[in-house]
């Protein structure tokens, strides 16, 4: 699987050694692909994401981003992805523009990032708020800052955790459009979300997680085939998948 950008192999992981949250998890995200990570609260989505980010060490198995594991080469590993967290994590002391500046500095972005940053500000209608501090932002605006920083980096992998909450409809559309754009340019996206109708329209493949185990995975058509209903929506499949597991 040479065009896999993210490869998770037989990952067992969690917070305590005697109580793993994830059990023997394997998944991958290819180039030109958006993969939806779906699961109930507590299914292990965030834990999976933390492992991928390198914030947690695998107990068993390994994770490769563009061929590197975290322990082999931290910098190379980290450079490959950007992350949009569920709750926006901003620096209280930095203005909006300084967040973009800092991101450019942290990822060592080449010249020309300023034009792209201006474009992003325009797209998310935040040009006028360039010198504002996060303290004055609403939840949606904070989320937009995270999204802009992530897209500014132009990595090969995007890790996105529930991006829609608090965003206005135009913001959601801009975000989705840009996701499709980076996907067509060759990036991979791993997106965790509860908004299944949106996921159904935009994701190429789905991974349904339940109690730390992958219960179903595949494209929409494959999933529909698995539960034997051709016209099933993602909601139907999801409920079916989590119910059938004892």
């Amino acid at each position: 699987m040479s065009n896999s950008i993210l490869e998770v192999n037989n990952l067992t992981g969690g917070y305590q050694a005697n109580k793993p949250v994830l059990h023997d998890l394997s998944l991958n995200v290819n180039a030109n692909e958006i993969v939806g990570l779906i699961g109930l609260n507590g299914a292990g989505k965030s834990t999976t994401i933390k492992h991928v980010l390198g914030l947690l060490d695998p107990m068993k198995g390994n994770i490769r981003v563009a061929g590197n594991t975290f322990s082999e080469n931290k910098d190379k590993y980290r450079k490959q992805f950007s992350y949009i967290p569920e709750t926006p994590l901003l620096y209280d002391e930095l203005t909006l523009w300084e967040h973009l500046q800092l991101t450019a500095l942290a990822y060592d972005l080449e010249e020309g990032w300023e034009q792209r940053a201006d474009g992003l500000l325009k797209e998310f209608r935040m040009t006028n708020m360039k010198s504002w501090f996060p303290g004055h932002f609403s939840k949606g605006m904070r989320q937009k800052v995270m999204i802009m920083c992530a897209f500014l980096v132009q990595p090969s992998l995007y890790i996105v955790d529930e991006p829609f909450v608090g965003l206005d409809p135009i913001g959601i559309q801009s975000f989705l459009d840009m996701m499709v754009q980076v996907k067509e340019k060759g990036a991979g996206v791993l997106m965790s979300t509860h908004i299944l109708s949106t996921a159904e329209r935009y994701c190429d493949r789905f991974i349904i997680l339940h109690d730390g185990v992958i219960v179903m995975s595949g494209t929409m058509a494959e999933l529909q085939k698995q539960i034997g209903r051709k016209d099933a929506t993602l909601d139907d499949i999801y409920i079916e998948a989590t119910r059938s597991e004892k």
Binding site: L53, L55, K74, K76, R78, Y83, P85, L89, A106, Y107
Partner: peptide, 10 residues
């Protein structure tokens, strides 16, 4: 701060 832990920094 979590974001800073994700940056590729020495």
């Amino acid at each position: 701060h979590v974001m800073i832990k994700l940056y590729p920094l020495p």
